[in-house]
Amino acid sequence: MASPTSTPEATPAHRAKMRAENVNFFYGSFQALHNINIEFRENQVTALIGPSGCGKSTFLRNLNRINETLRGTRLEGQILLDGEDIMQEDVTTIRRRVGMVFQRPNPFPKSIFENIIYGPKINGMVKGNASEIVESSLRRAALWDEVKDKLHESAYALSGGQQQRLCIARGLAVNPDVLLLDEPCSALDPIATAKIEDLLFTLKEQCTIVIVTHSMQQAARVADQTGFFLLGKLIEFDKTDIIFKNPAKRETEDYITGRFG
C-alpha cells in the first residue's frame, strides 16, 4: 500500500529536522507500527493524534530510542536526525539531542537546581557555569520567576504544572535539537495547560517539537502540522489547518469530529 501523505506542502524556511522512512515496529510478534513515513520540520510543532492504542506514543518513543529498552521489540526502517540514522549513532548522544517529556511530571527526588543540572553534568557540559545553565533553562521553560527564590528546595514542592515545566526545563538544559512531548498536559488543569502551550510557541524558535496529544483542540491550537494515526498506520499528515478544516481522509474526519467508533 502506498504510504500516506508524508510531506505537507514544502515550506522552504523549515527544513526537515527528523524523518522516519518506512518504519515498522514490533512488540514480539505484534506489529504496532506499519510503514510510517513522516518528517518533522525544524522550528515547527508537529502533533500526533489518534485513539488510544493507535501507535502514536510507540512511534514517539522510537524517535529517541527509548523503545529499545524494552525486551523483544524490533524496529525496521530508518529514523534520520539531520540525515543521519539514529540507530547508528551513540544512544546517549541521541537522547541528549532528542529530549522527552512524559505524561506525568517525573522530577527527580532532588532540588530544583539539581534536577536541571543533572543532564548537563552527565553530558560534560558544566564548566563553572552551572547557575547560568539552571537560570537560562528555567527561563526558557517560563518557570524562573516562580522558582528563583527556592532553587534548592525539593522539586516535589512544586505544583503539577510547575513540575511539568521543570521537566521541560530539565530537557532543555542539554540543548536538544528535538523535544518530544507525550501527552504533557493530560494531568494538568487548564491554566497549567495554557502555560505549557504558550511555552511551545516560544520553544519552537529553539528546537523542533513533536507532541502526542489526546486533545484535538490542543493539536489545533499548538501544532503547525498534524499526523493522524489509526491502528498503527499514519492515515493522514498535513498542515494543521487542513486537517481540522478539510481533511482528505474519511477516517481522519470521523475521528476529529467524534464519529469514530
Binding site: F244, P247, I256, T257
Partner: peptide
C-alpha cells in the same frame, strides 16, 4: 462543541 472539519464548515 468547537466543531471541526465538515461540522465546522
Amino acid at each position: 462543541e468547537q466543531p471541526v472539519a465538515r461540522d465546522m464548515r
